[in-house]
């Protein structure tokens, strides 16, 4: 176990160090979340005044900010399998298989790397929203909850993305699948608009949408009248999903090894 943790650490270090060498990538990493926040923030500014309400605040940016943390984390996760594909294509990962490296660490490190980046981006989004006047009702605890939700959200879908990457092993297919999954789940949630404002069938569907679980948990701690049971419940759901998708990714890695 300790070996697996140590090897995961080595592999995460390898990936992050390589990414740090890409200045454009770093710039986009920092800028992109702010673009979401500012763009959507302006576009839907007035929706909080819609009849029927359900926003819990009249400040749309306050409503939006926690959901953007989740959305950004979710989209990042859907793409995380691309790094696995390029690792396989360039024969870097297969080379490690002739060493005593922990097999699990090769998969888990991809998920951890992805989740770490999501947390960093989440923190940036929260700092910018602070500057835009967003107040987190539950204070520091709220921050911790939001970043935890971002990490869980990301690992849940990064596990899925890694698993799919290991099954399809083709970038073009991976891109198609990420789009196919990403946009519907994003729109079937209360990310941009209060759940009360969307059609009834979508409200039902959203209940089963993991993206919405994350949005609920993150938003609860920002708005007044936090329902801690709901926060805990939805974080627990995300945690369970993360465990399940990580297991799926590990299983697909074994299947991949049998094709070498």
């Amino acid at each position: 176990m300790t070996i697996a943790v140590r090897h995961t650490w080595f592999m995460v270090g390898r990936q992050l160090r390589n990414l740090m060498r890409e200045p454009i990538w770093i710039a986009l990493l920092l800028v992109q979340p702010m673009v979401w926040l500012l763009l959507y923030g302006q576009l839907f500014k007035r929706v909080t005044h819609l009849p029927g309400g359900g926003f819990g605040t009249t400040s749309y940016i306050t409503f939006l900010a926690p959901a953007i943390v989740i959305m950004n984390s979710f989209f990042g996760a859907t793409w995380s399998g691309m790094a696995m594909i390029s690792g396989l294509d360039r024969d870097v990962l297969p080379r490690f298989l002739a060493t005593p490296v922990s097999r699990i660490s090769l998969v888990v490190s991809q998920i951890v790397r992805s989740a770490l980046i999501a947390v960093i981006q989440g923190a940036i989004i929260l700092l910018v929203s602070l500057a835009l006047g967003v107040r987190v009702h539950t204070g520091v605890v709220g921050w911790v909850v939001m970043l935890t939700a971002a990490a869980l959200m990301n690992s849940a879908f990064a596990g899925l993305s890694q698993g799919i990457a290991l099954l399809v092993r083709k970038e073009a297919t991976m891109i198609a699948i990420a789009n196919f999954i990403g946009l519907p789940l994003f729109f079937l949630s209360s990310t941009l608009i209060s759940i009360r404002q969307i059609p009834h069938w979508m409200q039902i569907a959203a209940k089963f949408n993991p993206v919405n679980w994350g949005v609920i948990a993150a938003r609860e701690v920002v708005l007044p009248g936090t329902d801690w049971n709901s926060v805990g419940f939805h974080l627990a759901l995300l945690f369970a999903l993360s465990v399940a998708t990580a297991a799926f990714a590990t299983w697909t890695f074994r299947a991949y090894q049998r094709t070498i």
Binding site: H7, F10, R14, R17, N18, R21, R90, D91, V92, P94, R95, F96, A98, T99, P100, V101
Partner: peptide, 26 residues
């Protein structure tokens, strides 16, 4: 093991490649 197609990490330096390989070998 030196595979038929190179397995070096092209985004890392030569030294970093060797260090990581040594680490996973304990």
């Amino acid at each position: 093991y030196v595979p038929q197609s190179s397995g070096v990490d092209r985004d890392a330096t030569g030294r970093e490649n060797l260090m990581l390989q040594g680490r996973v070998q304990g």
